[in-house]
């Protein structure tokens, strides 16, 4: 079974230079590939935000000298960022008739923190009981976006 079949000899017994491709096995192969790829296709891309739970394994992160304890609390009023004894309240903003957490301001504050403490990589997120999973994920996502990759989630009380 050849991929290309030579055409019969031309005039004067000379071999023809043109060759015909056998398209049928090629189309068969492509059809099988399409069927296989369609069956195994994953249409929704899922991301994973890896966090540590408070009380988890203690050897996950080493305390560096140039780092501080940073806590981000999620309350019904908004974000409350606590670091080195300072408290920064980021109240909720109203958008589309609903009160939402202000992720943009939080991102700016974390950027400032990261600029002053480049080695800082850990943060503790403490949501209230009523905070929705979406808001928790958004807060963790914002922290990770500002290179605070070691996120610990702990209950507020």
């Amino acid at each position: 079974m050849a991929g290309a079949a030579a055409q019969p000899a031309g005039k004067g017994g000379k071999k023809a230079l043109d060759a015909e491709l056998n398209l049928v096995p090629f189309i068969d192969l492509l059809s099988c590939c399409i069927a296989f790829l369609l069956i195994t296709a994953v249409w929704t891309q899922i991301a994973g935000l890896q966090v540590a739970s408070s009380g988890g394994p203690p050897d996950q992160q080493q305390k560096l000298e140039n780092t501080i304890d940073v806590k981000l609390m999620l309350t019904d009023k908004g974000y409350a960022l606590t670091m080195a004894g300072a408290n920064i309240d980021i109240p909720k903003i109203s958008r589309d008739g609903a009160q939402n957490f202000d992720r943009k301001t939080l991102s700016e504050k974390l950027k400032t923190l990261k600029a002053s403490l480049p080695e800082q990589g850990s943060i503790t997120v403490q949501p209230e009981d009523a905070v929705a999973y979406e808001d928790l994920v958004n807060a963790v996502d914002t922290c990770m976006g500002e290179q605070l990759r070691n996120v610990t989630v702990a209950p507020m009380n």
Partner: peptide
């Protein structure tokens, strides 16, 4: 099981709603 991964739909930077308020 101390390493917990929260599942979320992956979104690229320019996609969807703006960051200003989720």
């Amino acid at each position: 099981f101390g390493n917990i991964s929260f599942a979320a739909l992956a979104k690229t930077a320019g996609e969807g709603k703006p960051l200003a308020a989720n």
